[in-house]
Write a protein that binds this DNA or RNA. Structure first.
Length: 587
RNA sequence: GCGCCCGUAGCUCAGUGGAUAGAGCAUCCGCCUUCUAAGCGGACGGCCGUUGGUUCGAAUCCAACCGGGCGCGCCA
């Protein structure tokens, strides 16, 4: 918000200078004005490098341009010393600004006004988006890689909602086909063995230990009622029963992670004609052909590196054919865009699917596929590959049990999807600054503690007395009514000592940039930015806390700073809400 | 061999064309009579994989190469 205001001031200064012919050959504001935060404090709170960008066109030295622009900024009443306490031109042509208290106070007022909605953006323009993610096979437990996909998708969905998109979340269920038959055959063998009829476990497919406990659940539910079935029926029934137990297990785990899908799309519903339907469309559009006994998609014509099989010579259709049918369904559902999140090991399928969508006559650019890289688990720096319980891969539920939902969400949300994650189990459990997830929550709890201290009766354990609140309910209510009228009441929050003011300013600057962070994160599909942003806010609060007492003898200062603490608490709660990490009142 | 992703401090990572490349951890040194020290401050630490190019300016864009991961099925 502050950046925007400053941007407008610089823009109108440039326009003024251009109009008066002060910028040489420049006849219009041809480059965007970008306000940035300099790294070095001596470069001011905010800076603008637009003069360098105009230099080429103006055929004038950047520093001269910056000076001309400065003259016009000076004459702008909005840029008074209350708002911008100081600004100067620095080589090679930067304009550096020092902020006063005015805009900071305005920002605090705005945060209070918008409350839980502070940071919400309308970049989404209410566009309808379908996000499909996790989409794991119902043939075993979710592992940590699914966890990453799940957390990323969930954060992205929360972020998109906050950024003004109309979002639906869907899980595509591969609940039919070869892998389900495999599951059925293996579960049938285990089922018989567990019911007293020793049966050899079929080779290949899923390791026994990965489905054994699910078969136990099937037995708990159905007892031995499938025992009299023949092989075909047994496999079929056990496949159904086992996959439903597994699906339920996955659903529950996802719920514990704070993930809730609007819809579960079952692949098996596509095999009653929908798949054949897309094959017809391909044929009609002349994008398929028969060869070597199989039916092929002419995907090479459509940008893929090779053609792909739709129906095998054995007669059954491929995964791609079903996926094409699934996407035909998606496109028929009147969305403005589709986001799909896959594990990076599936990236080979992307061109095939895009080609299929194109062959169906849809615009593949409405579909965005985001790939998530692998998660490398470690413990005190040593790599952890095998599950303690299952022996194969580390399951998501094990990690959840060990480190808890909040740490799992934070660490899986924090990095960019295209980077592999190094997830240290010991670090995630630590309750200290080393663990950012904890540190951010601690900052929120600290805000709550300060507010409690000021607004609730205080039990002094040493003197064994109960002291009345520092501020009465009425005083606090009056203050909240006051700041709706004028942001001036926040001005006493700021100290005149420049060193102390610097930390106060830094906190407000961090808070007020939340809407811009939300917008940028949404545009770039990077919810992880917000996780890091949350850390910045927490850090700024801690620094503020060290130098600025909130509860003092001066009521105006106390009220203003309590307002600042409330604003901080609100921003932390809002950003944690997007990441899906809880914001505790006390720790 | 081809395609995608990645290479930044000892470790984990930010940095989507701007000033002297930043955080956290680790190591070392300071700071509690006060709202949560579960904290804060300081020091140490870098040929941004390499080489070219684009331009006023490159960790950032382009090309080639080197190193690592993944994928290249009538599997899903």
């Amino acid at each position: 918000m502050i950046e925007q205001k400053l941007q407008q001031i610089v823009e109108s200064a440039i326009d003024g200078a251009v109009k008066d012919g002060k910028l040489g050959n420049v006849t219009e504001r041809s480059v965007p004005v970008v306000i940035e935060r300099p790294r070095l404090p001596e470069h001011g709170d905010l800076a603008c490098g637009v003069a360098m960008k105009l230099a080429g066109q103006a055929k004038t030295a950047p520093i001269k341009i910056a000076e001309s622009i400065s003259e016009y900024i000076k004459s702008n009443p909005d840029a008074n010393s209350d708002a911008i306490s100081k600004f100067n031109v620095a080589p090679p042509g930067f304009i550096n600004f020092q902020l006063g208290k005015r805009w900071l106070a305005n920002s605090l007022q705005q945060i209070h006004e918008r409350g839980a909605d502070f940071g919400r953006s309308d970049v989404g323009a209410n566009k309808k988006l379908l996000i499909e993610y996790v989409s794991a096979n119902p043939t075993g437990e979710l592992h940590i890689g699914h966890g990453r996909n799940a957390v990323f998708g969930s954060c992205l969905a929360n972020l998109f909602k906050f950024a003004g998109f109309d979002v639906k979340q869907e899980f595509y269920l591969n609940d039919t086909g070869a892998q389900i038959e495999q599951l059925g055959a293996q579960a049938w063998a285990l089922y018989q063995t567990k019911n007293g009829k020793a049966t050899e476990y079929p080779e290949g497919g899923y390791p026994e230990e990965s489905i054994s406990h699910f078969v136990d659940q099937v037995i708990a539910l159905h007892k031995d009622k499938f025992m009299q079935l023949n092989y075909e029926e047994g496999v079929e029934q056990l496949a159904l029963a086992t996959k439903s137990v597994i699906l339920e297990d996955q659903k529950q785990l996802l719920e514990t992670l704070g993930i809730h899908f609007d819809s579960w799309f079952s692949e098996s519903t596509l095999h009653n004609g929908k798949v054949e339907e897309v094959l017809d469309v391909f044929a009609k559009n002349n994008f398929s052909y028969e060869a070597e006994g199989a039916l092929w998609l002419k995907s090479k014509e459509l940008g893929d590196e090779r053609d792909r099989v739709l129906r095998k010579s054995a007669g059954n259709t491929t995964y791609l054919a079903a996926d094409a049918a699934y996407h035909k369904d998606k496109y028929s559902r009147n969305f403005d865009g589709f986001v799909t999140i896959w594990g990076a090991d599936h990236h080979g399928q992307v061109p095939g699917l895009r080609a299929a969508v194109k062959a169906l006559g849809y615009d593949p650019d409405l579909m965005e596929i985001i790939l998530t890289q692998i998660v490398n688990l470690s413990r005190d720096g040593k790599s952890v590959r095998m599950s303690k319980r299952r022996g194969t891969v580390v399951t998501l539920s094990e990690v959840m049990e060990e480190v808890g939902k909040d740490a799992v969400r934070y660490y899986l949300a924090e990095s960019s999807p295209q980077n592999p994650i190094a997830f240290d189990l010991e670090l995630a459990k630590k309750t200290s600054r080393e663990n950012p997830a904890f540190y951010i929550q601690y900052a929120h709890a600290r805000c709550c503690a300060i507010l409690r201290r000021a607004l609730e009766p205080y039990v002094n354990t040493e003197k064994q007395t109960t002291e009345p609140p520092v501020l009465s309910e009425k005083e606090w209510a009056d203050f909240q009514a006051e700041f709706k009228k004028s942001a001036d009441v926040f001005l006493p929050a700021f100290d005149s000592d420049p060193a102390i003011f610097a930390d106060q300013k830094a906190l407000v600057m961090a808070l007020q940039s939340f809407p811009a962070e939300v917008r940028d994160s949404a545009i770039n599909r990077q919810p992880g930015r917000l996780a890091r942003y949350a850390f910045e806010v927490a850090n700024a609060l801690q620094k503020f806390y060290e130098v600025s007492r909130v509860i003092t003898d001066d009521k105006d200062v106390t009220k203003a700073r309590l307002g600042l603490i409330m604003a901080t608490k609100q921003v932390l709660a809002n950003v944690l809400g997007i990441i899906g990490v809880s914001a505790p009142e006390r720790m």
